[in-house]
């Protein structure tokens, strides 16, 4: 009997422990997921704002870990080799640090802003020629941008990405090739209308923000 108990108890304990463990790991997992969900809304925008305001190296490292490998993959899809892509990503991230104070989280999602910097660096590296850029708009000295505004601009970006994925295949490929830098300006001009209905609501939102910021 004793022997039997001795034999059983450890098993029960192991079982119990593994239940506890899985309960803990589930809780941790759901916390991680929750963090990730929080992240998906305005986390990255806040990181850039922290880099601008406090030269926050940790926020910058997080941005780097998330975006650098994505930019590199993005550039390589356009035909850049790994060494050039790596160099271009590094220059992009240096510019993210140096230009963080120009980022307006109520007008662009973090990913959009970083995309435009990477695009410009790509053009600089590839052609070494001029790239006319619009004037940069000053944005107000408001200490904390409104969270709901940041979130809605992020949500519109996500919707737009979704809309592109749902385009008929031929048109989706045109849009993707353009952004991967694998299309000429004549080719894009010859496309007879890309039905991007979703872009219209994004444009309305952008216009609203611009007018708001101009006041």
């Amino acid at each position: 009997m004793l022997d039997l108990l001795d034999n059983i108890n450890p098993d029960v304990e192991v079982l119990e422990r593994s239940f506890k463990l899985s309960a803990i790991s589930n809780r941790m997992l759901s916390q991680v997921l929750e963090n990730n969900n929080n992240k998906s809304k305005d986390y990255w925008a806040r990181c850039i704002v922290a880099v601008a305001g406090k030269s926050d190296k940790e926020a910058f490292s997080n941005l780097f870990t998330h975006f650098a490998p994505r930019i590199k993959s993005f550039l390589m899809k356009g035909g850049a080799d790994a060494i050039i892509a790596e160099e271009c990503v590094q220059e992009t991230m240096v510019a993210v640090w140096n230009k963080a104070h120009l980022f307006d989280p109520t007008r662009a999602a973090a990913s959009t802003w970083i995309f435009t910097i990477a695009r410009n660096k790509r053009i600089d590296t590839a052609r070494r020629n001029n790239r006319p850029e619009p004037d940069v708009l000053p944005w107000g000295n408001e200490t904390e941008p409104d969270a709901s505004e940041i979130i809605s601009i992020q949500e519109e970006t996500t919707l737009l990405a979704q809309a592109v994925k749902e385009l008929p295949e031929k048109q989706r490929i045109i849009v993707e090739r353009a952004f991967y830098n694998d299309l000429s300006h004549q080719e894009i001009a010859n496309e007879t209308g890309l039905p991007l209905g979703t872009i219209k609501s994004r444009i309305r939102l952008a216009l609203q923000r611009l007018r708001h910021n101009m006041k």
Partner: peptide
């Protein structure tokens, strides 16, 4: 302003694609 709003919206396509992009190790 309107041209800027439209441009920023098209740039958001690039942002969305970057967000969804695969990764390549640095």
């Amino acid at each position: 302003d309107e041209a800027r709003a439209r441009l920023e919206s098209y740039e958001a396509i690039g942002g969305g694609m970057l967000e969804d992009s695969d990764t390549e190790e640095m």
